[in-house]
Design a protein around this nucleic acid. Structure first.
Length: 658
RNA sequence: GCUGGCGUGGCACAGUCGGUAGCGCACCUCAUUGGUAGUGAGGAGGUCACGGGUUCGAUUCCCGUCGCUAGCUCCA
């Protein structure tokens, strides 16, 4: 590549040595130097970093550091523009994030028109090609500078840093900001950006603090990249379960029914029913589960034993909640709460009889409807709701069985993910307790640490990659969470497997051991596939509504060419239904092209076109969804065999012709 | 819960600077009986989310509620 340096000279670099050559030419042994110029005719900001050990990085926009520098600079350009237009706005923080940046200001909220104005001002700043200089200050000097600039939030930030800290600042014209960097050499390369949205955000992420105004933006070095990003954002809306799920008549919401209470319509309910039947049979027939069906509500007494009354009361829907200081309802009624989990109910199933060590493990499964009083701002489509149904289970096991059973729970979860075709789309997390926040949890620190180590070992042994998240545990134990991202990149927990060595004590659960002594069992709380509503949402986005055949709410639609072939169509319909295929017939007086168009828009797996040819030869003309879906004619029995096989094996791919 | 945005027939949208509303798709009826992404004609359907206020008059302006939504906080 040819680099034109700032002084106008240019030099050609070739091959693997170029990185070192560039460094030698422009670094002169300094810790951090940079140049801006043109690479192969394109204006770039090229920055090299030489660490103390002489290892070296070149920051072009292709590198992570380079992208960070680019986004930091974009954030500062935003802040500079805001300060120009709103001199009273106070700067807080403005980090780089994936695909862009944001900056929080203490200022009134902004409309789209305001964002457009700020964007225009930013364009000016870029055009001005302002040089960016960095300098460092001691803490007292830094505080003085920010006090002079009347930036109280910056002063607060600096005050929280170590006294002997040396703080880096970046200055671009009339704007100077505290920032760890890196930054570009000038504002010029930040050519293609867009302020995407503004919203509220609490100062320092604490809801007790003031709400600031956050501005989000996305920025790129190339026009095509920005356009591609904006187009991507536009396109993923088409996969968004909250839009697509409604369009495809899978679910709906009604304002008088309430927030977080979606209605599954016949198609959505059918998909959920298919999953539920599959999971229940799978657990009971192949994984040794026994089924329970327990109440959806209970007296507060139960939750007092479980600890939920103390640790989770805010999250429950409580009935007759007018208790006096003695815990008695003024109306004389029992204080009841809708259940937020199934644990204690299944514990009492366990406790209903005396258990021997020979009986364990006992694996209870329940298709369990739960109620959680989520904050009003939290609800979203099918992914965050106030009533939902999960494939819940509790395993009551002897301590010596714990590791094996925990592994089995992971294996079952993996099997479910695999069957749904989403195994590659998840991340595993070890959700740990927070030792600095002990009052949120029950049990002894040693037990927590030991349990977490067990889980760590299991994950390593199974060679599953995972991250460790502090403070994400349940109050009674650590857990493995299996998360998935939605189309917008937000993560939700799909599956959870929790190790609980504590609640057996609370509920006085025991079994009679070999030596005749009463012994505490361990408990695993787990889901095999998690919440049906959330999984449905995930699948809608994964498949853009085109579910694998076995999950599709309508698998085959028979399309007679005209009314004359309705009788033959009925014959086919009967045969399909007899074989358990979800089939319908479109017997409207519409043209065949129109019927096909409609079936395709509804993302049906298969269409069977039938007319004179088919009736005569006792065949069906098969069309599957997608481009070039016409599979031609086949014997009805052939099609039935193929689709039954596809459904039975829960295949993720569709049949081929012959 | 907090800060914004939004709410017009089933869906996607026009529109009204205050004088009670339209288009397309879908739906219904009739004709058409067809060969792989939209046959033609006609018709019905909305107290403009709900409640209050201002006004001679409110879908339009103001306030409140409900819902949807972007984030923040929360998610045992």
């Amino acid at each position: 590549m040819i680099i034109t340096l700032k002084d106008g000279s240019s030099k050609k670099y070739e091959g693997a040595m170029s990185v070192l050559d560039i460094a030698k030419d422009i670094s002169e042994g300094l810790a951090r130097v940079a140049c801006a110029g043109e690479v192969d005719g394109e204006v770039v900001d090229l920055r090299t970093m030489v660490d103390k050990d002489c290892s070296l990085n070149i920051l072009t926009f292709d590198t992570e550091e380079g992208k960070k520098a680019f986004r930091h600079t974009a954030a500062h350009i935003l802040a500079q523009a805001v300060k120009r237009l709103y001199p009273d706005a106070k700067c807080t923080i403005g980090p780089a994030i994936e695909d862009g940046f944001y900056y929080d200001f203490d200022m009134p909220s902004l409309s789209r028109e305001d964002l457009d104005k700020i964007e225009a001002e930013m364009k000016k700043i870029v055009k001005e090609n302002i040089a960016i200089k960095s300098f460092t200050l001691s803490r007292p000097e830094a505080i003085k500078l920010m006090e002079e600039k009347n930036e109280p939030y910056k002063v607060e930030l600096i005050n929280d840093l170590p006294e002997d800290a040396v703080l880096s600042f970046y200055e671009q014209g009339d704007f100077t900001d505290l920032c760890a960097g890196p930054h570009l050499m000038s504002t010029k390369p930040v050519k293609f950006f867009k302020l995407t949205s503004s919203s509220g955000a609490y100062w320092r992420g604490n809801s007790d603090n003031k709400m600031l105004t956050r501005i989000y933006g996305t920025a790129f070095t190339k026009k095509e990249d920005l356009e591609a990003r904006l187009e991507f954002l536009e396109n993923i809306k088409k996969r968004d379960h909250n839009k697509l799920g409604r369009d495809l008549e899978l679910f709906t919401t009604v304002d008088v029914i309430g927030q977080g209470l979606p209605l599954l319509m016949p198609k959505g309910a059918k998909v959920v029913q298919t999953m539920q039947r599959w999971i229940e049979d799978l657990e009971d027939n192949e994984w040794g589960y026994v089924r329970t069906k327990t109440p959806l509500m209970a007296k507060s007494d139960l939750y007092k034993i479980s600890g939920h009354w103390d640790h989770y009361k805010e999250g429950m829907f409580v009935l007759n909640d007018d208790e006096d200081e003695n815990g008695v309802s003024a109306s004389g009624q029992d204080i009841l709460a809708l259940r937020p989990m199934t644990c204690p109910f299944q514990y009492y199933v366990y406790k209903a009889s005396q258990r021997s060590y020979r009986d364990l493990p006992i694996r209870y499964g329940e298709t369990s409807t739960l109620f959680r009083n989520e904050d009003s701002g939290e609800m979203h489509g099918l992914t965050r709701v106030r009533q939902f149904t999960i494939s819940e289970g509790h395993l009551i096991v002897r301590p010596d069985q714990m590791v094996e059973e925990f592994k089995n729970c992971l294996a079952l979860a993996k099997h479910c993910l695999q069957t749904l075709g989403v195994e590659e789309d998840v991340t595993y997390h070890l959700s740990k307790w927070d030792p600095d926040n002990k009052e949120k949890y029950i049990g002894e620190p040693e037990v927590w640490e030991e349990t977490q180590q067990h889980m760590r070992n299991i994950m390593n042994e199974l060679e599953i990659e995972f991250t460790e998240d502090v403070g994400e545990a349940a109050f009674y134990g650590p857990k493995i969470d299996i998360n998935a991202k939605n189309v917008y990149g937000k993560e939700d927990t799909m599956i959870t497997i929790q190790w609980d060595a504590l609640l057996a004590e609370q509920f006085d659960m025991y079994y009679i051991d070999k030596d005749g002594s009463k012994t505490r069992p361990y408990i695993i709380h787990r889901t095999s596939m998690g919440c049906y509503e959330r999984t449905l949402a995930w699948l809608i986005e994964k498949y853009a509504g085109a579910f694998p055949t076995w999950l599709a709410p309508e698998q085959v639609r028979i399309l007679p060419i005209s009314e004359k072939f309705h009788a033959y169509g009925e014959e086919i319909l009967k045969e399909l239904k007899k074989n358990g295929v979800l089939a319908t017939m479109d017997d409207r007086a519409e043209k065949i092209g129109y019927k096909i168009r409609e079936a395709r828009l509804q993302k049906l797996p298969y269409m069977l076109v039938v007319g004179a040819n088919e009736e005569e030869t006792k065949t069906v003309s098969v069309r599957k969804r997608g481009e070039d879906g016409d599979l031609g004619a086949m014997e009805l029995s052939t099609f039935v065999n193929k689709i039954c096989e596809e459904i039975r094996t829960r295949s993720l791919v569709q049949m081929n012709a012959n």
